[in-house]
Amino acid sequence: MIKAKTFLAIAQRELWEHPNLIWRIPLGLGLLFVFLAVCSVVFGFNYLGDINAEVTVDVVGGSDLMTVGDGPGQALSTFFCFAFFLLSQLIALNYLLGTLYQERKDRSILFWKSLPVSDLDVVLSKLIVGVVLVPVVYLLLAWMTSLLVALLLWLGLSSVMSDGMSFSELFFAAVYGGFEWFVIVCKQMIWGLPFFLWVLLVSGVVSSQPILWVLGIPLVVMIIENIAFPQSVISDWFWAHATPWPLGGEAQSWEPLSGASLVESVVIVLTSLILFVIAVVSRRHFNEI
């Protein structure tokens, strides 16, 4: 199995190559939100002056999709975690789409293959970076953003409200919201695994336009299924898993590894395993473009 040292070296290499995708974008967004919160507090509440405004926070809509609690703390963490989560899925898609393709295109694959690192190590490391590291980094930064914004809002609200909000309630609601989203992100890692492995596989095989192949082949399968069969089982399954878990139509009733969805869990694991093996074998056979 992959050595921790090799994985860390490859992960470090990916951080050197993709600092924007992996940490600069979420960090920049987080800082931007904190800056906006500071502006809101400084300009907004100062503008209100010392009136004893009655402040209420309503979370409107999205209750089917989001695990929104009643308090503003949880609403904050839900807002940031949800937004960063969706962004992390797009970033993971973009990363996995280019990671094996680019090293073949710039011919650096010949250098990487001249080092004693197996194809299994490379494919597994890149998969872990895309499916685990990216969402986790985004979630952590979203969570920290929500805590900082909660703190700033509390400071602002306390300055204008005589019976200010409880800081501990606001803070712990934001912390709890972060944990809830951590569970969702973990579920998505499993739910989206077949789709992300498909993307990685295509990245390692095609000689041009990987995005067209990633979406084009399932589209062709869908058209054939629709024409030839009364049901489109394969393409429905693919598109459901191509969608982030909280939004996936089929996923709403899906609980990983629970009795009700045992078949679905087995299908996910088996499909992922097959795609992973093909991706490893492909990296062995496909060199520079």
């Binding site: 090799t6 860390l8 050197w16 190559e17 011919r107 010949l110 250098f111 080092l115 004693p116």
Partner: peptide, 28 residues
């Protein structure tokens, strides 16, 4: 076994010291 190819196959986005550190990390 070492290998140097006819074309520039070193990853162009990398810095020389990063290349050295990476090689040291993966090559015993």
């Amino acid at each position: 076994v070492g290998y140097i190819s006819d074309v520039g196959i070193l990853p162009r986005w990398m810095r020389v010291d990063q290349l050295i550190r990476y090689s040291a990390a993966v090559h015993p």
